[in-house]
């Protein structure tokens, strides 16, 4: 059974004519000790999914369950019980840590929120030291302040803080996007080690497909607020079915292959006024732009349908195209 699950998750910002449906009808399920990757470009709603799952933004429709228990209401996702299980690590480690608090205080505060045996100050001190070791920071880090650390070390502090609460589900929102490659590698390796040792479940959100491929067991691809493809990682990267996924994969520069011409033309549409029918039809290389007879894409929104096995695709004309 999955630990954290969302069905038909829908999030809307604002109201009336200026309303923006950032996430629409998204299904996802996190399994114990496994990683679900979530990729998409800016404005596709991936960060909104993260914020909704940790209760920072309210849900307008759908259902969220933690270990089968309903946590759909805003209050449930803000309850101490839920927070002790589900935590989030933010993109920018330079802005997600209070600059006025030492690392020791940051960890201590999170441990206090855990309650129980951690009401004892001595117990919290011991646990803070243990957490630092776990995320690979020296023990003298406790008395120092966030600005005294590099970006990678700050991200370790943020991870340590999420673990201090006792969480076993981590929502990782672009956690390495602000870091250099050499540092990114250390943080990704740390996350993989922690997952192995503590059987953590990750929702790994990134715009970078190559990082998602490395970290995830299965992957969701989002476009303009909707999931367009869902498959096991190996399957998705060897046999992408949705034309958007294919285009994303072709767009990534590679260390080995030759450069391919840009697969998509034009910009993504304004998410406030998404196109009717399939949201991708305005840029789709196999849609009505290229093949005018495919009018179905203009009228009918394609539902996420099983392709083969676990593989699900939301496209009227999906066909697996080997990369």
């Amino acid at each position: 059974m999955s630990i954290l699950e969302a069905r038909g998750l829908t999030v809307r910002y604002g109201a009336g004519a200026r309303a923006l449906t950032a996430v629409e009808d998204v299904d996802l399920a996190l399994q114990r000790g496994r990683t679900l990757g979530l990729v998409g470009e800016s404005g596709c709603g991936k960060s909104t999914v993260a914020r909704a799952l940790v209760g920072l933004v309210p849900i307008v429709a759908g259902r969220v369950t933690l270990d089968g228990a309903d946590c759909t209401s805003q209050a449930a996702r803000n309850s101490a019980r839920y927070r002790r299980r589900v935590q989030m690590v933010f993109q920018d480690p330079f802005s997600s840590l209070n600059p006025r608090m030492s690392v020791g205080t940051l960890l201590d505060e999170a441990l206090q929120a855990r309650g129980g045996e951690f009401r004892s100050r001595r117990r919290r001190m011991a646990e803070s030291a243990h957490l630092l070791e776990l995320v690979g920071l020296p023990s003298d880090a406790l008395s120092r302040y966030p600005h005294q650390f590099s970006g990678g070390q700050r991200q370790r502090i943020a991870i340590g803080r999420a673990l201090a609460v006792g969480a076993d589900v981590l929502i990782l929102d672009e956690v390495t996007s602000a870091l250099d490659v050499s540092v990114q590698a250390t943080v990704l390796n740390l996350l993989q080690d922690l997952q192995r040792h503590l059987s953590l479940s990750y929702l790994f959100i990134s715009h970078d497909l190559s990082v998602v491929r490395l970290m995830s067991d299965e992957v969701l691809v989002m476009y303009l607020g909707r999931v367009v493809e869902h498959a096991d990682t190996e399957d998705l990267f060897t046999r992408p079915c949705h034309p958007y996924t294919v285009a994303l994969l072709k767009s990534i520069p590679s260390l080995r292959g030759r450069r391919e011409p840009a697969p998509l033309s034009g910009d993504p549409p304004d998410p406030r006024h998404p196109p009717a029918g399939c949201r991708f039809h305005t840029r789709c290389p196999v849609g009505p732009l290229a093949r005018p007879e495919r009018t179905r894409c203009l009228e009918l929104h394609p539902r996420l349908a099983p392709e083969a096995g676990h593989h699900q695709v939301a496209c009227h004309f999906a066909e697996a195209s080997p990369r």
Binding site: L56, R83, F90, S95, R161
Partner: peptide
């Protein structure tokens, strides 16, 4: 509007 405030809310401060 800062991230660290959102982060603290998620931790349960």
């Amino acid at each position: 509007g800062r991230d660290y405030l959102a982060a603290a809310r998620v931790v349960g401060v």
